[in-house]
Design a binder for these strands. Structure first.
Lengths: 108, 108
DNA sequence: AGTAAGTATCTTGTAATGCAAGATACCATG
DNA sequence: CATGGTATCTTGCATTACAAGATACTTACT
């Protein structure tokens, strides 16, 4: 899969999944990987950025299956960001698709 | 507009426009800019890459409106690449959109 | 005890690409 | 001769995804 396509998009995917339920990093990797390849080396720095920017908060929860899990939860700001990014993504893909099908009138 | 979204996508846009007609760089910037912002500092290095990879060839043509124009023309390899990248882009956006609307059954 | 495998988090360094800003140069108009 | 539109190109920076590895907890097998 083209790595470049994912730039910026994985962030929306993470926010979108978190909009439905709190998740820990490892869980996000598994959930998102069903549709789009994503590596652990990608998700953890991304989650740190989201936290630094105030889009998520975290809480620890013990697990019987391994070390404690760090759950990520959307803030109000995160919910807003998720909405705005999704809108922007839709507008962007619409523009790109219009270009790709050649509806570029213009050229007389 | 989110710069990250464009990563890898502008390449398809350029190939797609060139699939319809030969263009020079400045013309590509103007054509594509109608739908998606693209800077000259982006297009020229991109066109150089496409040429280095054998996806396009070039020829010069004089202009009465300024310096000579360097036209870019798709090769067979370029046409193939355009087709493959477009397919990959369609598959990618389909996957992302499925994730964004939350059809992630899985979570029981 | 020791080892392996699954679960879970995190860091470091590298690669790729878009952009701002600038340099260069041709042509027309004032 | 200065300005602005046309046209090409380069340098250095910012961002993001990833491979590869380190760490550590739990279970299960030997």
């Amino acid at each position: 899969m083209n790595i470049q396509f994912k730039k910026g998009v994985l962030e929306i995917c993470v926010l979108s999944v978190l909009a439905h339920k709190d998740c820990y990093g490892y869980e996000l990797v598994n959930d998102i990987s069903k549709r789009i390849d994503i590596a652990e080396g990608t998700i953890y720095p991304l989650l740190r950025r989201l936290k630094d920017e105030g889009f998520v908060t975290t809480y620890l929860q013990e697990s019987t299956e391994g070390p404690p899990r760090k759950y990520y939860q959307l803030t109000d700001s995160g919910r807003k960001e998720e909405h705005e990014l999704k809108d922007e993504w839709m507008r962007f893909t619409t523009s790109v698709n219009a270009l790709l099908v050649g509806k570029n009138d213009a050229a007389e």
